[in-house]
Amino acid sequence: MKDLKDDAFPPFPVRDIRARYVWQAGCPSDFADLTVDFEPWEDGIVLEVTPGAELVGTISESELRSWHESFVDGVREELAARGVGGVALAVVVRRTVVHDVDSSARSFRAAGRVAAREAFVRIDGPEPQPKRRRARLA
């Protein structure tokens, strides 16, 4: 019987994932910009913020903690949508950029989904693109 970690996501460290979610649809809009690492860990998902992690913008510590949790919720949602069963992941936050008006829990959740998608691209390669057909000349 295989150990869960053998089949768990991610199979290896995926570093320097830049997850940006920017949606300009009026005021306020949505904005979140994080740089994270996905590290193999114990069962489940754990959030870590590196000591000295860069914060660009002004936000209270409690709100930042809440938004980071929303980011992890977005990662969870994307993994569930892709049918990933075994998860043994440490999400390590290294840089966070916030906007005074446009950042919110919703934008951080969306950025979490973006981060998970980017991790899949780095692990599995890009999704195959449909081939273009050449026009036949008569």
Rank of each mutant, 00 (worst) to 15 (best):
A25E: 15
F108Q: 00
D43F: 08
M1N: 10
E42W: 08
S29R: 13
V87D: 11
G44E: 13
G57Q: 11
F12P: 00
R94C: 03
E78Y: 03
P28I: 13
W23V: 11
R65H: 11
S66Y: 12
V97I: 10
A81L: 11
A116N: 06
V72S: 03
A135N: 00
R76K: 15
R82I: 03
G52N: 06
T58R: 12
V22P: 00
G112Q: 02
V49G: 03
A138F: 06
G57T: 12
R82N: 13
P130D: 09
D7K: 14
I17E: 00
S62W: 10
P10S: 08
A19R: 03
V49A: 07
V101Y: 15
E77H: 03
V75K: 00
D37S: 02
A138C: 00
G44I: 13
A81K: 14
F12Q: 07
P28K: 13
A135Y: 03
E77D: 14
G83L: 08
L55C: 08
L79Y: 10
K131Y: 05
L64N: 07
L47W: 02
R18N: 10
F9G: 01
P28T: 11
A111R: 01
F108P: 00
L47I: 04
K2D: 12
S60H: 07
L137M: 05
A110Q: 02
D100A: 15
E77S: 05
S104R: 09
D6T: 08
P10C: 06
G112E: 01
A88S: 15
T35E: 12
V72P: 02
